[in-house]
Design a protein around this nucleic acid. Structure first.
Lengths: 341, 341
DNA sequence: CTGTTAGCGCTTTCAT
DNA sequence: ATGAAAGCGCTAACAG
């Protein structure tokens, strides 16, 4: 007798057929009679053999059913950000429909080489902080879909950030406005600060710079210019970072009459600070957001913002990966006319 | 010449050493001189060989560096629930400190056998809906840590749900109160409804039933009984499900004067409905929550609730898994004395 | 310190 | 429809 191990070979001569037959019974039903297949499966079940070892299959077939989601920021942060969670939600929905598994991977960490040998593909959400990672992705020989940024020659999912920013700014700015911007990740700094005197991050890969360009273009149409001294950098879309910027902005003299925020979280924080100071919105201060998160839809006064569907983004990105689509998709957005403008 | 493939063997005779030496250079620095090691690593880099193939390593070593997080509910849902996100946050923090990867896995899906061959271990958050899954976990020969429920003989992380519920209820209930409970997952139904006339889920594995017992015990101390007609089942801790129950509870005649909620999300929803109706809290209606989420801490009136640290839970669960600890940990909780009681 | 070699468990031609 | 056998790429025991 062969050793009692629950391996294809062991099971094979336990029930007296060849390894290939068992393998086929599990993976390629068309290679044997339905009846024999049932028999074998039943036998296996009785013995306690639950099918071919996955690790071996991965090596042999070069496929694992695992898709890595690379998050630009830490998983920690992403999982508590409403925009990112919705995105993850979309991805995971499509993946699980296709029986794929989701590996959460933070772009901050070591090399993606760590997983690229067994993962079926990558969805990369947001431009990685370290440029090297983007280069590696390109040379990877695995399927990659980028979201909210682009890598030459790779499929992607985006919205037109500049146009969206332009649109909402156009509807907001009036000729006698004093304009400020609470921006997200505009420079390389881990603290909230004004951007004047700092080198901007590479504009090509940054949605924030596209948005800023949109704001500026709209301002220019009213013959206005947005001073770098009235543009804030906020390192992460979180309340406490945003609050700092909000306070500084509202302390500015003269006080801005229009403040455009690059996320709803930021805008909501600003709104709260402003209302607490008794500033009338929108009479004395107009506020715009970006994203269209649920909390903004629940809050009164209703925030005027750009609504993008992060769930759709996630679903589409996952579908592109699974279908090996190579297209660069641009999703629609919608301006929510709220009560803050 | 050997074929030009970037494999240990190929690289080995490309640079003229044995495969073992290269393998050691990457995995066991102590097996060769530092100098030789540097040389080899440099050569490999030049050639474009980034280290041993991971899929092969997994098969060979039986270790992947991947930890599966099994979520009782869909990933979709979990990722947008503040309590679950905090938990994931804690897990992912510890895991990434140890260079492990996180595989998000939904317990609704097929069998965990799908991944158990290559995953290093499982963290199971919340009692799985299908009992079979729990049984499989036990017979798995992989490290498992359960959270918010127990499996005999396996390590776990919990809080004392019954005692916590008892504590907050004791502080809340007065002798002339009319008590209702907005419960979570008390019966097997996908709709919000009262629990009278329904079979309860197995109490032993359900934190909700422990909490309910705590409430009942506290009520009994005041010589009171909580009628099943005033206990609601809410299938998921989400606003719209909670709202239904809140409306029904407030429509009850006589209207309850104390409503204990099994999550803050539920309590916050109830609070909103009550305030919208002009019901004075806590004068006419006392409300308690459970969890201690950030939104509750920001909301006014401040919610009286049980605060448990989901981040700590996640961190501890991950540490237990990595350390192969087998203990059953019980974490502390704290009663937040808010303004709703 | 280095090289040889036997598997890890499986899939898939190829021949029967 | 089935069986035999060649690897997938690597690690670790062993011998030198």
């Amino acid at each position: 007798m062969n050793k009692n191990k629950l391996t294809l070979k062991g099971v094979a001569d336990l029930i007296g057929v060849s390894t290939a037959t068992i393998s086929n019974a599990f993976n390629r039903p068309d290679q044997l009679s339905a009846k024999k297949r049932e028999e074998i499966l039943a036998q296996c079940k009785k013995i306690g053999y639950h099918g071919p070892n996955k690790a071996a299959q991965i090596l042999r077939k070069g496929e694992s059913g695992i898709v890595a989601l690379i998050l630009a920021d830490s998983i920690e942060y992403m999982v508590s950000d409403p925009v990112a969670s919705m995105f993850i939600k979309g991805v995971s929905r499509v993946l699980s429909e296709h029986n794929k598994h989701l590996l959460l991977f933070s772009g901050n960490e070591a090399s993606i080489r760590n997983v690229s040998d067994f993962v079926d593909g990558f969805i990369c959400y947001g431009a990685p902080h370290n440029r090297a990672l983007a280069d590696e992705l390109k040379s990877l020989a695995k399927a990659v879909v980028t979201v909210d940024f682009d890598i030459d020659g790779l499929p992607s999912v985006n919205i037109d950030n500049e146009q969206a920013a332009f649109d909402i700014a156009s509807q907001t700015i009036e000729s006698d406005d004093n304009i400020a911007v609470l921006g997200l990740k505009l420079i390389d700094a881990s603290q909230t600060c004004r951007i004047d005197g700092h080198a901007l991050l590479e504009a090509s890969t940054s949605i924030s710079h596209r948005r800023l360009n949109g704001y500026k273009r709209a301002a220019a149409q009213h013959g206005k210019n947005i001073d770098n001294h009235l543009i804030w950098h906020i390192p992460e879309s979180q309340g406490h970072y945003a609050k700092e910027a909000a306070v500084q902005a509202l302390d500015s003299i003269p006080r801005p009459t229009t403040i455009m925020c690059m996320s709803d979280i930021i805008a909501l924080e600003l709104l709260q600070v402003a209302l607490a100071r008794g500033i009338r919105v929108p009479d004395e201060l107009k506020i715009t957001g970006f994203d269209g998160i649920e909390e903004a839809a629940r809050t009164r006064p209703l925030l005027t913002t750009v609504c993008q569907s992060s769930i759709n983004k996630g679903e589409l990105a996952a579908r592109q990966l699974l279908n090996h689509s190579m297209s660069n998709e641009v999703l629609a957005y919608e301006i929510i006319a709220g009560e803050t403008v």
